[in-house]
Design a protein around this nucleic acid. Structure first.
Lengths: 151, 151
DNA sequence: TCACAACAATTGTATATACAAATGTATGGT
DNA sequence: ACCATACATTTGTATATACAATTGTTGTGA
C-alpha cells in the first residue's frame, strides 16, 4: 500500500509534498506500533525514552536538563514525566547535594528489569518493521535523512 | 549535525534502531516547523489537514468518517477539530438530508482564502527542508519509505 | 553583603490526543 | 411494525503536550 492509497488522495501530489507526507505517515505508524507494545507496561514512549537514557548513564544520575536535551521533545513535560515513573517505582529523585537547584534522577532495579523486557519487545517490533531492508538500504535511508535541512 | 550528536548518545546505536530514531526525529522536526508556520493562523496541523481535504473535495461536502480516513491520525478528535474550525468560520456543518446520521462539512470562502495563504507558507517551509535533495534522491527516499512493513 | 541576573525545576493553563462509552439514526429480518 | 444490529457522530475521562509564569537556588558585580 502506497501513500496515495493510504491517505486516499486521487490525483498526484507534487514529489516534495508527497515525500514529507510519506515520511510523517511512516513515523506516525512506527510510533503507534511502539506505543502499542509499551501499553501493557503502562508506559508512554517518552517515559520509555527517559528510562533508556537513565540506563545509558550506568548508575551516574541524570538531572532534568540532561534528560531534556537528550529527548526528542520538550522540557516542560520532563518533571511530570519523571513523576509518573516515580509513582511506578521505576526511578528515584534526589536533590543534588552540591547544587540544590538540580535534581538527580536514577533508575531503580525494578526499572532496569522492566526496561529490559520492554526493550526486547520494542526491538522485535523494530525488526519486523525493517525486515525488508538490506543493510545497504538502511544506510542509504540514513544518508538521505541527513539531507534534510533541519535548521 | 547527525543523529548521534542531536540526541547526545555516545557509543554506537545499532543501525536499525538508529534508522528508526533518525526517522522519527526528522519527522518531529518537520512537524514542529510546519506547526510554527501555522501558529499565526491559530490553526493546528490537524486542522490544516482537514481544510486541505475539504478544499480537495471541490465543493462536494465531506462527512466526518471521510475526513477521518483521510487523516493520518484518529477519529475521536475529528468532531472537536471541526468544532474549532467552525468557531473560526473556516468550515460549515450541515446534517445530511438523505441520511441524518451523517454530517456534511464544507469549507467556507473565508476558509479557502486563509488556507491558500497558509498553503503557500507551508510549501515554502517544505522547500527549505528539502532544498538539498535532487529529484532522484527524493524518489529514492520515497522508494525506501515504501520498504517499511507497516502492517 | 546585597541586589540582580542566570539557572533548574515546577506549576498553571489551555489545548490536543487516545480510548471507551453513550447517543441518535438507519437498516434488515421476522 | 418491532427489535436487534450496525452505523455515524458525540461526549466523558484520563493523559499528553506546549507555552508562560513562578519558585527556589546559585553566582556575580557594585
Amino acid at each position: 500500500m502506497n501513500v496515495e492509497e493510504r491517505i486516499k488522495t486521487e490525483g498526484n501530489i507534487p514529489l516534495e509534498k508527497r515525500t514529507i507526507i510519506h515520511l510523517i505517515l511512516v513515523s506516525n505508524i512506527i510510533n503507534e506500533k511502539i506505543a502499542l507494545v509499551l501499553k501493557p507496561f503502562d508506559i508512554s514512549i517518552q517515559q520509555f525514552n527517559v528510562l533508556r537514557i537513565l540506563r545509558g548513564q550506568k548508575g551516574k544520575p541524570a538531572n532534568l536538563s540532561t534528560l531534556n536535551e537528550r529527548m526528542v521533545t520538550k522540557m516542560s513535560n520532563t518533571t511530570r514525566l519523571v513523576d509518573k515513573l516515580i509513582r511506578k517505582e521505576y526511578v528515584e529523585r534526589h536533590i543534588c547535594p552540591s547544587n540544590r537547584r538540580k535534581i538527580e534522577i536514577t533508575i531503580t532495579a525494578k526499572g532496569q528489569e522492566q526496561l529490559n523486557i520492554m526493550d526486547t519487545l520494542v526491538s522485535e517490533t523494530e525488526k519486523r518493521l525493517l525486515h525488508r531492508f538490506s543493510v545497504v538500504e538502511l544506510e542509504q535511508l540514513n544518508t538521505l535523512l541527513n539531507n534534510f535541512d533541519l535548521k
